[in-house]
Design a protein around this nucleic acid. Structure first.
Lengths: 219, 219
DNA sequence: ATAAACCAAATTGGATCCAATATTCAATAT
DNA sequence: ATATTGAATATTGGATCCAATTTGGTTTAT
């Protein structure tokens, strides 16, 4: 019997489908911060009842992506400049460790893929996709790491500032500098220099933080 | 009008009450790892329906404290030795930063409180309360920090290894050494030496990790 | 006797309904 | 005119009910 098998018990529940969709809409900026999430409306959109929607929203709250008030509902969470700065500091602490751990575990294939993603990022002229391509490149490198909890933290931290990252890329020379820095990180990985890759990753994040804060109101 | 006011909209919902209770039961070891969480049973215990229970469980899953399988239900999450080690490494990375940030913000009152907690910990002879007293001391120091996201991470990381921390305290000379190390950290805080406090915190966590892994099966 | 088929109980996922609270807006009093 | 009251509407929180799936035991065929 030749049949491509799949784990049926892993099929998506309604609540996880709603969760994923809302998460993407929030970090992608389709839902702006402060915007209320109406359970009814979302349930109608996904042709389901409010129960899975409520579960999805409570999970999003646990992730810090929405804020809810009893009997008032949920709104997309926003960040103050101070909070944004703190998230970038957290990233600057955690992500270099992930890269340091990942470098010795990177296969030839993975490095090839990363090089492609790096090139795709630099080549793109559509600001709408810069955010995704940027994240794609970083996550490709991180995916070689086996530090699942560090990755969990990093993914959540990036989720929370994804909108700011997009903003940072389109402003001044954000895109050009990111491209250069990506290339540097990639080269360090290819040379197996974990220390250098970690250092460049930290600089990359701290640099993004700085240029972001400089353009933020009353920082 | 003189009336002591309180924010009624902040009153606890059924789901948050269940969430808090389950979280405490899990990290306190009342529920052992692998133990299934039956929605009906929990709903009966709290005299509510399964809806708030399900919301609580989905939040616990988001925190990594339980694992659920579709149509099979939730069980208390456990950690492999490798995973335990990684959580301790994460703590060793994040918590020193929290202390470093907190030291300059510590008031006289807070330091007094911390000294009391430190003494209470060392004085206790009841192994059942060592875990709580230990956490109480650390959280007192951390509470001076204004790094809310770092604190979020640390709290969650500690939640996930709380059981192992308890185990570590009761074994060999874990309690005695922790008492000594706590005192060292406290002194550094009192002297306003953030660097030293951070270093001792890192050592404290790495030391706990080592002695824990040495006693763990097939580490 | 053993293993496959199958049926009943248990359990979870989701839908619908009701209760509690918030919000909006018209009516009223000052 | 403005502020306050009160009713109608909208929205969320929770309870109850039904459907889908798993689980454990029983039957049945070999």
């Amino acid at each position: 019997m030749k049949l491509k098998s799949m784990d049926i018990s892993a099929t998506a529940s309604a609540s996880s489908i709603v969760f994923d969709a809302l998460r993407k809409a929030i970090i992608g900026g389709q839902l702006e911060e402060g915007e209320p999430l109406r359970q009814d409306e979302i349930a109608r959109l996904f042709n389901t009842s409010r129960i899975p929607v409520r579960e999805a929203i409570s999970r999003l709250e646990e992730q810090g992506l929405v804020k809810t008030q009893r009997y008032k509902g949920a709104v997309v969470a926003g960040l103050s400049p101070q909070e944004t700065e703190e998230i970038f500091d957290l990233r600057a602490l955690v992500e270099p460790e992930i890269i340091r751990n990942a470098v010795p575990l990177m296969s030839k294939e993975l490095l090839t893929k990363a090089r492609d993603k790096c090139a795709a990022f630099s080549a793109s002229s559509d600001p709408m996709e810069w955010g995704d391509l940027n994240r794609d490149f970083h996550e490709t490198l991180y995916s070689a790491s086996d530090l699942k909890f560090f990755l969990e933290i990093a993914h959540n931290a990036i989720d929370r500032v994804e909108r700011q990252i997009r903003a940072q890329l389109v402003m001044s020379n954000g895109m050009e500098r990111a491209g250069r820095e990506h290339f540097g990180i990639l080269e360090a990985c290819e040379q197996g220099d974990a220390e250098q890759a970690a250092k460049l990753t930290r600089d990359h994040i701290q640099g993004a933080k700085k240029s972001l804060l400089a353009h933020l109101p009353l920082s």
